[in-house]
């Protein structure tokens, strides 16, 4: 159990029988009065964000949650399958659980799978991934406006904006948190 003053950003807690991650925590207290901690929490299952306030005598359960590095195997259209490379144990996530991570999933690559009570509930991509460009129109000759860009389709199906000098068949590094092009990769 966690005291109200152990509620910190990044801590994962169980409230209403569901796991949440604390995305913001504020300690507030009138000098002579009761202390409160206000937390903003994100539901680890459906991504919903809510706020809750706890008083100093309250305690909150720690969520039985862990992250495991797992290899993405394939999708059969209904489930996305991952494997623990150490134990060869496999887990399957639904489309909803995979969410926007699907944009960055490349077979054989490693991802962080979140397990709650040993069941997979979410998958997090690494901050940066390197992917092939499968479709991209050539840059128009003579267009030298700096900062100009064009759409490019990646092997995962994601469409990002790339500078004009980047071509189909090349590989690029992408920031998965913003979905933005970072640089050309080898």
């Amino acid at each position: 159990m966690l005291n109200h003053n152990q509620l910190r950003q990044g801590t994962r807690v169980e409230i209403d029988s569901v796991p949440w991650i604390i995305i913001d925590a504020q300690f507030v207290k009138p000098g002579k009065g009761q202390a409160f901690t206000k937390i903003k929490i994100k539901n680890l299952i459906d991504g919903r964000v809510i706020e809750r306030t706890f008083k100093s005598s309250d305690s909150v359960s720690k969520a039985d949650v862990m992250d495991k590095t797992m290899q993405y195997l394939y999708s059969d259209g209904e489930f996305w399958h991952f494997m623990d490379p150490a134990s060869y144990e496999q887990v399957a996530l639904t489309e909803k659980q995979v969410g926007t991570t699907t944009l960055w999933l490349r077979e054989q690559e490693n991802y962080e799978v979140t397990l709650w009570k040993d069941k997979a509930i979410a998958v997090i991509p690494p901050p940066f991934v390197v992917l092939d460009i499968t479709k991209c129109d050539p840059g128009i000759k003579g267009d030298t406006v700096s900062g100009a860009n064009k759409p490019a389709t990646l092997e995962t199906g994601a469409v990002i904006k790339v500078p004009l000098f980047v071509n189909e068949g090349e590989r690029v590094r992408v920031d998965t948190r913003t979905g933005q092009y970072v640089e050309r990769a080898k």
């Binding site: 507030v28 207290k29 009138p30 009065g33 009761q34 409160f36 306030t53 008083k55």
Partner: peptide, 11 residues
């Protein structure tokens, strides 16, 4: 009443 007043004060 007193705790609720404390909470409204900070909130």
């Amino acid at each position: 009443r007193s705790s609720l007043t404390d909470l409204l004060l900070v909130d």
